[in-house]
Write a protein that binds this DNA or RNA. Structure first.
Lengths: 336, 336
DNA sequence: TATCAAAAGACAAACGTTTGTCTATAATGA
DNA sequence: TCATTATAGACAAACGTTTGTCTTTTGATA
């Protein structure tokens, strides 16, 4: 690897000049002919700046961390994708940690170490307390797809709108007995989607039946169990709105395992449109959330914070763009 | 952030001693009491080494790159997961690049820059030529789940065995007309699985019918199309072995879109057991490949190469551990 | 022609480590 | 007691940049 000094020698100038040329220092006065000599030398030696040296000198690392619960969750794949794109565009590297076996403590230690300059937290399993603790350190971080009371640096989607879209779609199909398998009701996503469901019902004057709401973790297994409870009800629903694609997957299976047909016997709609939703049997009607955009926006804001462009944290951002994708898992209820 | 110098001052020693203590230099002679003083100072100031400085000094970066085709492909999620675990364990960071919008050229430039010390290539879409080009640079890299003629540093699974397992399972169920939707036959995985299929048939004296083999890209769409061709055959198969989970997803859909029932009318089995296979309708019989282990092993070998423990590249590794997971998408053929 | 300002670069210190060498003190043996 | 050898730690250079300042050269003006 060629160094600045070697380039300087070849171009017969001081290495400081090379540095300024390479970095396009606007305050530099230089003859065009000298600049050309330098650029030629850079080219010839295939000079590339040593990042460790630069980072050391500038006290930066150009690395961002991101915590997700699990690599194989397709919801997070999309967020990561957006985050990575934006990071690359701004010259940052993204280090993704799956929380599966590490614990936040260990995951954010690189932040405290200064190994990374900021952290994206896209994980609802992390305790609020830990996050408030993190806030005290004044290190830049950003919540993605979740919130914590007292923390303003978050990026979320318009979950309320998305849920309302789903609920109203079912109502429009003629359903009155609409169940909701919610996410954990201590999370922002779970709560907002629940609220959207409630508002959707309300606006169309559909009775809210508490027993039709089952709280569930965002897993296939929990979705399955919750759906079983709903199916065991004396007066079961004719449609169900699942708060998340994992839950939805489990719920579908529970319905089908009972020998019921979707959508003939039961309509189902879920939040998050991922790569296999159209391939399911039947193809799933979903609400598509702007996950990719969320990832991008979160990184954008995080970098702004790091660079001090946003005060200490900036304001919470809600990304619009929830949209209904109608496929074949919803239909009018069976006529009595 | 506290520096070595500050710790040294507090402990009233030279910073070089602190460095050696922190790094457990075995050649260091030091009084226990001095060591304690240093350790206490480290603790008090919460000293953490500055990685940029260390990396600069040691001429390393402790970063690995990994190229995948797409973040939402669950097959790669598992490989990434294994790779990340192993990297973390050995003190390396893993930078994952999705090739979607970047092109290898751009992706491996950090390797050439010295920004990363080694590269994992888990992407069959990259041209062999580019890889041979990369080989010439003598920079450490490792192929994961693919091979290139003339390149010995690869880690693959036992695809042949996996395919044979799948094929024999179908034969054992009583099938004779067994189709195979293969992956691209210029890739190692595609070819090995095809070979496993052939050997499986051969060992049980089942005729090989060329038209029963459809070559397909590893996508849902291509799987769908290939299955349609098979279904349009004058004498269609009673079972199909899909070379990959994406293909399998597409094929299932094609079968069901024709109003056929799995497995009554058509049995199907696919390679790769991912999180949603058990949730599909019907739950899918699969061959589980050791993807996580592949990721781990690849990183392990890559680091060995980087650290010069393996000659220049080491030898190709095949990871065993393919296993059949029987669910409900396979059954004996319809009796005539 | 002397003066001054601007232009073009050189100089040097600093970022925080690591590590080879050197020195001073303490312990050992004869 | 003196020489010798461990022991304990100090010293200093180096890794490759960046950036504030200083010097020299050039050109313009009076």
């Amino acid at each position: 690897m060629a160094t600045l000094k070697e380039v300087a020698k070849l171009a017969k100038v001081d290495s400081s000049v090379v540095s300024r040329v390479v970095n396009n220092d606007p305050a530099l006065n230089i003859k065009p002919e000298t600049r050309k000599r330098i650029l030629d030398a850079v080219e010839e030696l295939k000079y590339r700046p040593n990042m460790s040296a630069r980072n050391l000198k500038k006290g930066q690392s150009k690395m961002l961390g991101m915590i997700i619960p699990d690599f194989s969750n397709p919801v997070y794949s999309l967020i990561i994708h957006g985050a990575e794109d934006q990071a690359a565009q701004e010259g940052f590297n993204l280090l993704v940690y799956s929380l599966k076996q590490k614990g936040l403590e260990k995951s954010y230690s690189p932040l405290l170490d200064g190994q990374i300059e900021g952290l994206l937290i896209a994980n609802s399993e992390i305790d609020n307390k830990e996050i408030l603790e993190l806030k005290k350190t004044k290190k830049p971080f950003m919540l993605v797809n979740r919130t914590v009371a007292g923390v303003d640096n978050y990026v979320v989607a318009n979950d309320l709108l998305g849920a309302k879209l789903a609920t109203k779609h079912l109502i429009k199909q003629g359903h009155h007995r609409i169940a909701h398998i919610s996410g954990p009701l201590f999370t922002a996503t779970g709560l907002s989607r629940f609220q959207g469901y409630r508002e959707g019902l309300q606006e169309d004057n559909i009775d809210y039946i508490p027993v039709y709401v089952q709280e569930s973790k965002y897993t296939v297994e929990n979705g399955y169990e919750s759906m079983e409870i709903l199916l065991d009800l004396p007066d079961p629903p004719t449609a169900v709105f699942a708060s998340n694609i994992m839950i939805c997957l489990g719920a579908m299976k529970a319905i089908q395992d009972r020998g019921l047909t979707i959508p003939k016997d039961m309509s189902i709609i879920g939040v998050h449109d991922v790569f296999f939703t159209s391939t399911l049997q039947p193809p799933l009607t979903t609400v598509k959330m702007p996950l990719y955009e969320m990832g991008r926006e979160a990184v954008k804001k995080l970098i702004a914070i790091i660079q001090g462009k946003e005060g200490e944290t900036g304001q919470g951002v809600t990304i619009d763009g929830a949209s209904l994708i109608v496929r074949s898992s919803t239909s009018p209820p069976p006529s009595k």
